[in-house]
Design a protein around this nucleic acid. Sequence first.
DNA 1: GTCGATGTTATCAA
DNA 2: TTTGATAACATCGA
Length: 274
Amino acid sequence: MPELPEVETIARQLKKITIDSRVEKVQVKLNKIVRTGPRKLATLLKGACFKDVRRMGKQLVFEFDRDRFLVVHLKMTGQFLWSNGDAELPKHVHVVFLLNDGNRLLYRDMRQFGYFLGFSGPEFALWQNNLDIGPDPFQIKEKEFVNHLSTRKTRIKPLLLDQSFISGLGNIYVDEALYASGIHPLSQAGNIPASQARDLFKAIRRILREAIKLKGSTIQNYMDLESESGQYQNKHLVYHQQGKPCPTCGREIEKMVVGGRGTHTCPHCQKLFK
DNA sequence: GTCGATGTTATCAA
DNA sequence: TTTGATAACATCGA
């Protein structure tokens, strides 16, 4: 589900709401979600204080006192909910954090693709070292991005979705950025002229920044912590806009499949670099 | 009832 | 090296 803007939004809200509160107990309802093991997670986090929540690519990193870490990947439908008291749990809640202030932090995931990793400090460092994840669009420099693109033979859309190349982009924002910079998703990355690659880079940053400002895009069930929807979906110019007129040329937005993903384009405005 | 699609990604085969 | 198919799973809409 969530891409960089949604995960960034969630991280910021989680940080604000959880900072300095203490975990009394962790209840794991669905064991497979916790890949490092439910017992270990419970032991690790019992009595731990939230110190920081940040985003790495599309993943969330929770830092606790006493050198403990929790990494969460939301995949398609993972979400965090804030709940006070002991109201009945919503459907698909797989992990519950009982906090010292009486509140509960819930992890809900309809499709159960998301996962938790619980680490000690050294384990976390090891995990980070082995992590094959590229810089996100705010970390990499324009020059570097353009250089990297020019060396690749693969198609631009799957490349932008490849988290080891650049992290944080997903299907929505790739379609929007390619449209904004006039590049067809089937273009060979290495054949995109440098000037247009720079346009692409700028479009990616601009679109992500704007989406973060609007707390991301809500398509079906992504919601931020306050159970509010993001608003960026109202700004989508091509994503899920097939059949509607292109804002630039008025011709129909088309939908095709690229790398197994639904892909939305204006074939007239987006140039194919073979 | 059935089929295809859904914001992600790991894995395997061609 | 690159690609495509498949799988993990639940839900929705046609």
